[in-house]
Design a protein around this nucleic acid. Structure first.
Lengths: 345, 345
DNA sequence: CTGAAAGCGCTAACAA
DNA sequence: TTGTTAGCGCTTTCAG
């Protein structure tokens, strides 16, 4: 018995187009896929029919037939601190914009880091940071799906990653402070569960060591990137009997909080306290004293990741060597640091 | 002639599972879809096979077969100002988290507002704000795809929307200022291309009118929501020969900038200038004077939208009446406003 | 340059 | 309770 199933979505399909254009569905398919071996006359007829029917091919059927998918999943660990800065939004913005341009579908996964993400039907994955979700990355790699990690440098896995050179950036920032004559340099870290925070801390330490400045653990205060904890840290630092003359802060928004606290406690900026942030968040431009900071190319990182992933997805040779890219930062000198005379230091 | 095509993705399919479990693919399908008419023994065998083969059903095949899709598209106009506040991120966070929980796929469209978005294969759409992309909304509606608009109240279209009651929120904020004795109340608006900004302005005007305070157009300064323009506006306001004693600012981040400017210009807060913001951005909590503001339930709006859309998608009765929901705001009184004695006012 | 037909992996109607 | 089978809408041989 023949059962006729209605097109469930009531949508027009390639068949309708073929009928209207007076050609076979194969020809329609060829036109859709820009295959050149179609007679101009037929091509135009097909175009016409497509337009008339307002036809859009079903991506599900296409993907089922080709086994290919142009869906890019962006996996972001749902960890509080990641939402404190403008970092996450910049990333989403950069990736989203480029995906739009490249006609890639962007699937957003705000993961709890535990539940395995469903990779079925996904063309490629971008992992933004790895915070407690390394197993998700390993799963993706094991399943052979093109993957790329951003904002986290991974040594021990054959995976392409694009990260910021936080160590060098932090070292340069600290060196700059040292160059201004500072010796009592504090550091307010970010959340040490992120690699960015640990690397910035490392760069800070490295600069001190290379300049024979004994590290003073009292001057290192750890936070979760929130302004609240930055405030507490700043108060603690400023109220010390032997307070630092400079502080390198792991993010701009925290640095701004430090500036605010310093002012509230009657300190003159930048004379009483030199401050360097990290991010180049536009907010740092305002205020009576603009913030010296380390610019990190977030948008560039975002865009590169999409381009790179797109290559991986479309490449025949899946066994290309993983690229490890470290994007340089740039010290942006503004007004929040002051040379200190050595007597005072 | 029989051609054998290898499974292109090298993936195991429902057939492999069926073979291993010793049942038909239909039974496997039933197990996958939790249809109860499967003998316990078979169910277990299928589960076993699924586990052994590490099988995951192809979503494309499922969707092709069912004609259903659980993909939710979130459409955000790629307009600069939307990224100034923490608003966009909150929305993405709220929607992303709930989609994750509901097993909905979240497709992110950062649209240029012009190019039509491909709705093929999309289960439902959430439009976050309508800024120059009304035609996209109309397209979605015309194609019958479940749609919902958030952060924008739409009168003239049969579409469910969930918005913030910005008018009342702004009116309450202004009333509060009036209640403290202020008569010279300024308003720094957001970008008037957004409904939020126009409604907040409207609420402000309404409060003045109801209290017989003549509107002073000099006191209304328009911005694009950026801190830069807020700074300019604040300077302009404070330096007036007859400056306002209070200002209602359309966003917290701008309000914080206003506070900063006031302090820089030697004003005492809140004595010399009372300030109310809008958002309840946590940043407002810090600083010497915490910010009085209007709390808007962004996360709630985000979550409601997903729930509502999910209903729309799964409802048989597609012709349900569109819901128009206005979420109330809440005035959060902190330290940035001061009663003014009437002599001064 | 074109079309027939075999799949892609799954669901669902129907028969058993 | 289970299996058979006809699609879902498209791509891709292969033969013309």
């Amino acid at each position: 018995m023949v059962r006729i199933k209605k097109n469930p979505s009531g949508n027009i399909s390639i068949n309708d187009v073929a009928r209207l254009a007076g050609v076979s569905i194969t020809t329609v398919s060829r036109v859709i896929n820009k295959i050149s071996t179609v007679k101009e006359k037929n091509r135009l007829q097909v175009f016409d029919a497509i337009k008339q029917l307002n036809f859009q091919p079903s991506i599900f059927a296409q993907r089922l037939a080709t086994g290919k998918s142009n869906v890019v999943a962006l996996v972001i660990p749902r960890y509080e601190g990641i939402f404190y800065s403008y970092y996450a939004l910049e990333l989403i913005r950069g990736i989203g914009t480029l995906c739009e341009a490249l006609k890639l579908d962007l699937l957003l996964h705000l993961t709890d880091t535990k539940s395995p993400i469903n990779l079925k039907g996904i063309g490629g994955v971008i992992f933004a940071d790895i915070i407690g979700n390394r197993s998700q990355l390993e799963d993706a790699l094991a399943s052979g799906i093109p993957s790329i990690v951003i904002n986290h440098y991974i040594d021990d896995l054959e995976v392409s990653c694009i990260a910021i050179d936080n160590i060098t950036g932090a070292e340069e920032a600290t060196n700059y402070l040292i160059g201004l004559g500072h010796k009592k340099i504090a550091h307010i870290t970010g959340d040490m569960v992120t690699q960015a925070a640990t690397h910035r801390y490392e760069g800070y330490q490295r600069a001190l060591k290379k300049n024979n400045i004994g590290p003073n653990e009292e001057y290192v205060l750890k936070t979760d990137y929130s302004r609240g904890q930055a405030r507490t840290a700043a108060e603690q630092l400023i109220k010390m009997p032997n307070p630092p003359t400079a502080v390198f802060v792991a993010s701009d928004s925290m640095a701004l909080e430090v500036m605010a606290v310093a002012r509230e406690l009657g300190r003159k900026l930048p004379d009483d306290l030199s401050i360097v942030g990290f991010d180049d968040n536009p907010s740092g431009l305002y205020g009576p004293v603009s913030l010296t900071t380390v610019r990190q190319p977030l948008i560039k990182m975002a865009e590169e990741s999409v381009k790179e992933l797109n290559l991986l997805i479309s490449r025949k040779d899946k066994r290309a060597k993983a690229k490890k890219i470290l994007l340089p930062t740039e010290l942006v000198i503004r007004e929040s640091c002051q040379r200190i005379d050595s007597g005072k230091a």
